[in-house]
Design a protein around this nucleic acid. Sequence first.
DNA 1: TTCTGGAGCTAACGACGTTAGCTTACGGCA
DNA 2: TGCCGTAAGCTAACGTCGTTAGCTCCAGAA
Lengths: 196, 196
Amino acid sequence: MTSRPERRVRSTRMAELVRAALGLLETEGTEALTMRHLAELVGMRAPSIYKHFDSKAALEVALVEDALFDMGDALHHSVADPGPDGPVASLLAAYRSEATSHPNRYRLTTSSAFPRADLLAGLEDWAGEPFFIVTGQAYLSQALWAFAHGTMILELDDRFLGGSDLDLTWQAGAVAFSVPVAPPVAESVSVPPVGR
Amino acid sequence: MTSRPERRVRSTRMAELVRAALGLLETEGTEALTMRHLAELVGMRAPSIYKHFDSKAALEVALVEDALFDMGDALHHSVADPGPDGPVASLLAAYRSEATSHPNRYRLTTSSAFPRADLLAGLEDWAGEPFFIVTGQAYLSQALWAFAHGTMILELDDRFLGGSDLDLTWQAGAVAFSVPVAPPVAESVSVPPVGR
DNA sequence: TTCTGGAGCTAACGACGTTAGCTTACGGCA
DNA sequence: TGCCGTAAGCTAACGTCGTTAGCTCCAGAA
């Protein structure tokens, strides 16, 4: 059982910058999130942003921490109060809904280049914990997480064949991972290796 | 049944540039793949590259087409000659092995920003076809593809908890998707919506 | 011999993240 | 009241990026 970390405190100016950055990211796209554009949006010049954030990466860390708090809250809620289709389907629905609400922030959060080491300690573990709760099994939970992320990013990037009803794709995964499966190898009770 | 497209013809200089670009990408990392670095590697200046490729994106298209031919060949072989663990496990092993052999090229191939529309027509469909062959069911094949990509990118990005035996994670997915599953909704025989 | 086109070059443009160094306003304190 | 330190803005500029304009040079065809 991991616990929800404390949010970092932000000055009003920092909060304003993060809010504007999210707006820019989602309305204009990833490439539009530049220090000069962001500065203009809040009525200052690019170098002044550095009075509030050490770097562009630090600002992105703030955006991603928001994303992980939102995702963690959504997933923990979904497992605490699963719908009629079972806990796995409920978790996947929450994941999909949360990611879809801020697609570019989701891409940023999961991008290979993102400096994950700078994130609040324990935040990713806490946000990913519901995958373990719902499967009760370490490696199955990793596989379920991988399915969720894979399906999500392919859907956001419009990679599935046109005409596909993606509800059915998500459902196919939910069914596959809801079937009780014997552990592939004897597995002692251990820490849940979900995400990090 | 889709068919393997014809490779684009390349001049010797183009081939040399693509070979050097792959080396740069895999040994120095994504950010090191710049027009100036690449030019230096083959003994010319950056603007001269534009005598052979219209843009950096066009060069990346060449890299990604190589990746898709390699992946398609590996996957089609794996389904034609599955191992003892069954066709799904065999397909996943081939996918994992191929992606692992060129991790940064795999990242490029699957990146959100990549201009997929410029790829050789039919190439992605052909490369992804084995996912349909192995499941025999449209939406299950999409879910399996999503699992494979999700697990792959998380493994390459070192996102799974340290100490995880990722063989078991892949195996958990192979088991989940090998269980015969009743179609979640009556599905008429239709085109296989795998990738595009 | 002349011409043409391929393939190299230098110089430069605009955008990017970032730094140096200046100014200005405000709050605490002798 | 006068001083001082700090927070938070500014301009100018640096190095890197992809890319373009415009030149040179040379092989081979006419």
